[in-house]
């Protein structure tokens, strides 16, 4: 009773204690997860779909276990940021886009890129070729172009416009959200999509309505903006190189196996199991396109880091004012498996 009274009388002490205890709790949780070797958490960038087929393959086929690792593959989402989770110790590996990595590096984050999954950025613009003719990037003049303000498609588009000397006044930028109605209603000429995801769905819808669909690929127009890559922390690289190596080896083996010609049907079935909402025929198409972007040729090793593309991406971001200055992203590139 006396203790209780004493506690009541020292409200200020309580006020101080609450945040301190919260901090300690937070710290202890974080440290615990950093020290604990198992399980390793791998945070994806998006939900389970075709873009993560190799990750799912590695997990489902027990490739991580074969390397002596217990890995939890966790789906991402719009509110998830793998790099932040790495720093906070909530994950040990993750998938992040190049612009996220470069932004993080520019702010002092100890992030390291250990493999580059997509060799071509799947972000493209869909349009109706009968009505909108885009033979060269210059044809973008006078068009209404959908763009996610703040997203990497804005950076890519602005880089593209700058590269071809197209002034912003010569195009009309239309703010894009999840709803494709403005494109269906022809209020927008070009709409940004992930070629290996919504691109297929929208194309199918247009074709179903008797229309044609084509894609404008900024990569082909000379703006190679790097997409998803596998990241970890520099601390992880230094303190547990063997775990990083085993993880990368298992992961890339999963990707290689899922991209192998003989694995097609099995990979598609695997994706469908994790993504039952997408019809099988669409997954088949998504898989085929993803394969081209991840493994452009039969002898191309999955995970290869395209240094030139990374430097170009950094340059674009500097030019677009998305980062205050050059950060030397090459220093963050740490390919684990050399071939």
């Amino acid at each position: 009773m006396r203790t209780f009274q004493r506690l009541q009388s020292s409200k200020w002490l309580m006020l101080l204690l609450v945040p301190v205890c919260t901090l300690l709790l937070f710290t202890s949780c974080t440290k615990k997860s950093e020290e604990r070797p198992d399980p390793i958490r791998y945070r994806l960038k998006w939900l389970f779909n075709t873009s993560v087929v190799g990750d799912l393959w590695a997990e489902e086929k027990g490739l991580f276990e074969r390397e002596g690792l217990i890995v939890e593959v966790k789906p991402g989402g719009p509110e998830k940021d793998a790099i932040k989770e790495l720093e906070l110790g909530h994950a040990q590996f993750g998938v992040a886009s190049a612009d996220m990595v470069i932004r993080a590096v520019s702010k002092g984050s100890p992030v390291a890129v250990i493999a580059q999954l997509f060799q071509t950025n799947p972000l493209q613009w869909i349009y109706r070729p009968g009505e909108t003719e885009i033979k060269t990037p210059e044809d973008l003049r006078g068009k209404v172009i959908g763009v996610t303000f703040g997203g990497n498609d804005e950076a890519i588009l602005r880089a593209l416009l700058a590269k071809y000397g197209i002034l912003e006044e010569e195009v009309e930028l239309f703010s894009v959200r999840y709803d494709y109605t403005p494109f269906y209603e022809r209020r927008v000429d070009l709409w940004p999509v992930y070629r290996n995801a919504q691109g297929i769905i929208i194309k199918e819808k247009l074709e179903g309505a008797g229309e044609r669909a084509a894609f404008f690929d900024p990569h082909r127009a000379g703006v190679p903006f790097v997409a998803n890559s596998v990241v970890t922390t520099k601390e992880m690289l230094q303190k547990s190189p063997e775990i990083v190596e085993k993880f990368t080896k298992a992961l890339l083996a999963g990707w290689e196996a899922s991209m192998a010609p003989e694995s097609g049907a099995e990979a598609i079935a695997l994706i469908h199991r994790f993504d039952p909402d997408t019809p099988l025929n669409q997954i088949e198409q998504q898989y085929a396109i993803t394969k081209r972007m991840v493994k452009p040729s039969a002898d191309f090793p999955v995970g290869t880091i395209d240094r030139a593309a990374w430097q170009m991406t950094e340059q674009i971001m500097v030019e677009q004012g998305l980062i205050p200055g050059a950060v030397g992203v090459a220093r963050a590139l740490a390919p684990v498996i050399s071939r």
Binding site: L23, T27, K84, A104, K107, G108, S109, P110, V111
Partner: peptide, 8 residues
Amino acid sequence: LLDLSDYV
């Protein structure tokens, strides 16, 4: 306290 970067 956790020595987090400016990114986080």
